[in-house]
């Protein structure tokens, strides 16, 4: 299978050096005051989780719709590249670039709290969560009719998923919302970020794995209507 789309996305990220640096600095600007301000662990971990996941959904949805409006998505798909492969490869490259850009912020957020092994595990969890966030971003991009709608849909989707994952409140175990939380993809990221401060147990790995496998399959299933919607977004 050709990885042409992922390759070109990585090339673009490397070519846009200014943007690459800015995308490393901006998360740092948000994380550093939280670290230095000695925010309570529950609040700090919520801030980190929200920042990282919004980075993923916005970072995939908005460039995708922008490229569609320019006619670039239509041109790429006219070559015969399949919509499913296009979207999945774009998400794969996107989450990798996001993870690299968020690495300094993650390092600052976890500084002094984790061993090297713990840090690497957290990085892998963040990368996997970004994979899901990028795929969600691609799907919402297919529902939007403008960049403004895309930003709105990406924000709402990410925030709801974070809410279901227990980032903003902890549901009672055994309740409906407790079950939803256990099945939510970003729970493990939040709990990992929370656990490094308060030593709480970390759960949710299986939900993350299931989402990481199921969501690309779902993307492949809905890729054609997403592609049709994106091509229709081309400015006439």
């Amino acid at each position: 299978m050709s990885l042409l789309i992922a390759e070109v996305e990585l090339r673009i990220a490397l070519a846009r050096k200014r943007l690459l640096v800015l995308n490393m600095l901006v998360p740092l600007l948000l994380v550093v005051p939280v670290v230095l301000g000695a925010a309570p662990a529950f609040h700090a971990s919520a801030v980190y989780a929200v920042l990282f996941m919004l980075f993923g959904t916005f970072g995939s949805a908005i460039p995708l719709v922008r490229d569609a409006e320019m006619g670039l998505v239509g041109r790429i798909l006219q070559t015969g590249i399949r919509p499913g492969g296009f979207l999945v490869q774009r998400a794969a490259a996107g989450c990798t670039v996001d993870a690299v850009q968020l690495l300094p912020a993650l390092a600052v957020a976890t500084f002094g709290s984790l061993s090297l092994g713990g840090f690497l595990t957290t990085f892998v969890i963040m990368w996997a969560s970004l994979w899901i966030a990028n795929l969600l971003g691609n799907i919402v991009a297919g529902m939007a009719r403008s960049l403004a709608e895309t930003a709105l849909f990406a924000a709402v989707t990410a925030l709801f998923m974070l809410h279901f994952s227990g980032v903003f409140r902890t549901p009672m175990p055994g309740t409906f919302w407790g079950i939803v939380e256990a099945a939510s993809p970003f729970r493990i990221l939040h709990e990992t970020l929370l656990g490094m401060s308060v030593g709480a147990s970390v759960e949710g790995a299986s939900a993350l794995i299931v989402w990481a496998v199921v969501l690309p399959v779902l993307t492949l299933v809905v890729a054609r209507p997403i592609a049709t919607s994106l091509k229709a977004a081309t400015r006439q």
Binding site: R11, D67, L72, L77, G80
Partner: peptide, 18 residues
Amino acid sequence: RVGGVGYAGEETAHFDAL
């Protein structure tokens, strides 16, 4: 047919950074 055709339309969209 989509992949077997060479098409140049009105759009000049490219990867601008490349």
